[in-house]
Design a protein around this nucleic acid. Structure first.
Lengths: 335, 335
DNA sequence: CTGTTAGCGCTTTCAT
DNA sequence: ATGAAAGCGCTAACAG
């Protein structure tokens, strides 16, 4: 590749003039500019982003660490982040922690070492304290927490209105006549799942319902076991799964138990499945605006670059309650 | 951040010694090494990948351009690429062309300008010639084509055995009694879809079947229109969709036409839906090993770095034919 | 309006 | 076994 020096020589100007033409950073005589453009054309010159980043304070890149690249919801967030970043001329550097704190820490270090202008991260469930302090000490490099938001976080964050959505979902199901629920709540180290659990508790308490069965196992095999046991005991009329993986496990249990939805038991899930309208049963779902969350994280990052000392913001995007067959047609008299 | 100079000063050695300790690139007296390590610890020093890349020929990063980050199959490929790259200490820089040749070209330029060690790209349907020549002139920076492979490509490529898989699928359906198919073939500028179409033709020809109805519209609205019309005419007993988006459109048409699967019409699709076992109808699917394809692309890239002049390789991973309800229970006598 | 030049932080010859 | 020093390609004072 040609360098800026060759372009300058060919155009008969200094490298600084070439640089200024390239970046439009000071006035250049039209004729000079033309000579430079011609030289660029002839040499096939392209700016070297590495050398540029070396000199400047910024790299025009951002890092994203997701906790599970295999989950469709995270794939959507990646898509949203990429879209918003590209729209602002930022390049995306992607890493996946796969819910492993060691890989998470390695990913964060790699990205920081590459001098990304900012970092968006969906912390993994067992995220280490080392990562937290590393992130905090990295100021003024902005960090935005995605999906998994924390109380009193020193960082900007974007999540969903999990607690409120779960409450609305449960209220709807109660109004439809359900009084005995089985909540498949999942790993309670994950803030998102904690929030959903709290929303559930809120709704149960406010409706003066008795205690409900909650499965909060971490391991999926254990989840299946406990859900199966709870179904066997059998007084729940409605099952709620707090995430897609939990919904998969739950649906498998329902199938194994020979329970059909919604005839024998109602079902609802968070995050949901793609193209769910095309298949049966269609499942009542609280849908996360994953793409928008990713895009919003980029916005927060950009805002933060412009105002490093503003106090941290937590953004919560609304989830939508999509009512479908799996929670319909419940007949209180029959239960 | 501390620099290598501060570490050197603190350790009472030269920067070159620190560098050699860091990269384990020449022998260092254990005691010296210890002093350096201590200084690194104390300063919290971390290597600056930008400066490092500036000096060396490599950046230890690879670029990936996907043509549609919203498609689950591509999300899986991204996941596979990330996984394989991370395993080799390579950082992934991600871009999405969204099937837009302008964005594709921009993405390629951005990645090259960042001096990625290699480039993996799923070309978009209307990919411009400018991109082709840009990619070819970038040697010796390796380029691997992903998913969408081309005849006589100067690059390494990894795709699926589309032609053979489609042939197997059609043969299976023929054996089950089907003689009139509707193929929803999609955009014939996309090599993957062309290959699937060819496999279909092969099978029809070898079975001496009459001409079949093929929908090859690009625009999804047009696809729906033509599929609806073909269904109305109504002599097909079996519909095959060549990709997930086409399957979605087709299933909507079937639903709108009031046709149930498999009772009234058989159905099969490529790429498929996630968690398809849990929903009805379960769909006979030719599944693409998307994750593995992404990982394989990284392998090809690495191999190529080691052997820049070997002739280009095309790798075709096997797809699996997953037989499910949507293609069962067809009764020839009734048709 | 344009040119000269000092680095950014690091790796890597070349000496010793 | 270690150090000195020359840049990698670029940007941004500073000077004219």
């Amino acid at each position: 590749m040609a360098t800026i020096v060759e372009v300058a020589r060919l155009a008969g100007v200094s490298t600084s003039t070439v640089s200024h033409v390239l970046n439009d950073t000071r006035n250049v005589e039209p004729s000079t500019r033309a000579k430079v453009m011609a030289a660029i054309e002839k040499t096939g010159y392209r700016q070297d982003a590495v050398a540029r980043a070396m000199r400047r304070a910024r790299t025009d890149s951002i890092g994203l660490v997701v906790s599970d690249a295999g989950e469709p919801a995270f794939a959507e967030m990646v898509h949203g982040v990429e879209h918003a970043a590209a729209a602002r001329g930022l390049t995306l550097v992607l890493a996946n922690s796969a819910e492993d704190p060691v890989r998470e820490e390695r990913a964060v270090n790699t990205l920081l070492s590459r001098r990304v202008d900012g970092l968006i991260i969906a912390r993994c469930a067992a995220s280490s304290a080392a990562v937290s302090s590393r992130l905090e000490s990295e100021s003024p490099r902005p960090v935005v927490l995605l999906d998994r938001v924390f109380d009193n976080s020193p960082h900007d964050q974007v999540g969903a209105d999990n607690r409120e959505s779960m409450r609305r979902l449960v209220e709807h199901l109660q109004a439809a006549g359900h009084r005995r629920f089985l909540l498949v709540a999942g790993d309670q180290r994950v803030p998102t799942l904690v929030e959903r659990f709290r929303g559930f508790r809120d709704a149960i308490r406010d409706a003066d319902l008795p205690q409900q069965v909650v499965v909060d196992a971490v391991d999926m095999a254990e989840v299946r076991e406990k859900v199966a046991a709870a179904l066997e005991q059998g007084d729940a009329t409605c099952v709620i799964a707090s995430s897609t993986p939990l919904a998969v496990a739950t649906l498998e249990c329902l199938r194994d138990a020979g329970l059909t939805t919604p005839e024998q038991i109602a079902f609802a899930a968070f995050d949901g499945f793609s193209h769910s309208d095309l298949f049966r049963p269609t499942i009542t779902t609280v849908r996360q605006p994953a793409f928008e969350m990713g895009a919003a994280a980029v916005s927060l990052l950009i805002d933060r670059l412009g105002a490093p000392d503003a106090s941290p913001r937590t953004l919560r995007l609304n989830q939508t309650l999509e009512l479908r067959e799996s929670s319909e047609n419940y007949r209180p008299g029959v239960s």
